[in-house]
């Protein structure tokens, strides 16, 4: 199925939490500042309802997104008040993909964990939470995965400052 078909289906089964979608478009020739948008279309979902949404898409017989390829986050810029949560879904039976995006406010970066739906999300969420400081509620094992336990800061945030030293080893 192409993106339009998938989106129509999501609308018609009333998947929980869907707030909109975005598609690539050509630049507007009238407006010089508008550069358009390239790449993949995606579905916008409310982060608080992401697990339900994933479950609904997993179990729907004509969508069947049974494999979560990736879950990650993005910090678009220092000024922006939102983090993005990006999920890539894959259906082995129907052979289609879907990109899902959630906007999560930076001040209160808390969202429910999707581990109950896709166990593959477990490590991805651990990585997200150490790199961006997102709390996944209901995660079975919320420790750091790549960074040491006592690491300070969230490295992939745009306002991260590199450490001066760690356990007596200078970083410069």
């Amino acid at each position: 199925m192409n993106f339009q078909g998938i989106y129509d289906r999501i609308r018609s089964i009333q998947a929980p939490g869907v707030t909109g979608m975005d598609e690539p478009r050509e630049p507007n020739p009238q407006d010089k500042k508008d550069k358009g948008r390239s790449g993949d279309p995606y579905v916008l979902v409310d982060p608080q309802r992401l697990p339900e949404f994933l479950e609904c898409l997993r179990d729907d017989p004509s969508l069947k997104f049974e494999l979560m390829a990736d879950l990650t986050a993005t910090d678009p810029s220092k000024e922006d008040g939102y983090l993005w949560i990006n999920v890539q879904l894959l259906s082995l039976v129907r052979k289609h993909r879907l990109a899902v995006k959630c906007l999560l406010p930076k001040e209160n970066a808390v969202m429910p964990s999707s581990v109950s739906v896709h166990r593959g999300a477990q490590w991805a969420e651990r990585e997200c939470s150490e790199m961006y400081g997102i709390t996944f509620e209901g995660h079975p094992d919320p420790r750091n995965i790549l960074l040491p336990e006592d690491w300070i800061g969230h490295p992939l945030r745009k306002d991260y400052e590199f450490p001066e030293e760690y356990h007596g080893i200078s970083c410069k």
């Binding site: 690539p24 550069k35 358009g36 948008r37 390239s38 790449g39 993949d40 995606y42 390829a69 990736d70 990006n86 890539q88 894959l90 993909r97 990109a99």
Partner: peptide, 9 residues
């Protein structure tokens, strides 16, 4: 690169 986002597997 033109603005946008893409995932390639």
């Amino acid at each position: 690169i033109p603005p946008g986002e893409a995932y390639v597997g």
